[in-house]
Amino acid sequence: MSTEWPLWEIFIRSQHGLAHKHVGSLHAPDAEMAVKNARDVYTRRNEGVSIWAMKSADIAASSPADRDVLFEPAASKVYRHPTFFPMPEEVKHL
């Protein structure tokens, strides 16, 4: 239905210093109300210190059908993982 409010993706930063994390989506007539709605829907239990809202329609997403083309080539390249370095005994928490 074209009269429905647009969908917004909501990102919340839970603490200063951490990155904003996607928490879900909601409907709102405009950006300002999207932030207010996000405050009411997603921060009722002290979840955040900062809110980002962006129109879902503005997100460019990869297609699931392209999965093999995009991600399969990385599967056979174990040398891209830093797992081939000998670790000194003393280093315990790396």
Binding site: W5, L26, H27, A28, K36, N37, D40, V41, R44
Partner: peptide
């Protein structure tokens, strides 16, 4: 009228 507003009014 919408879920978001329902929650906001209750808040």
């Amino acid at each position: 009228p919408v879920l978001e507003e329902d929650i906001a009014l209750a808040n």
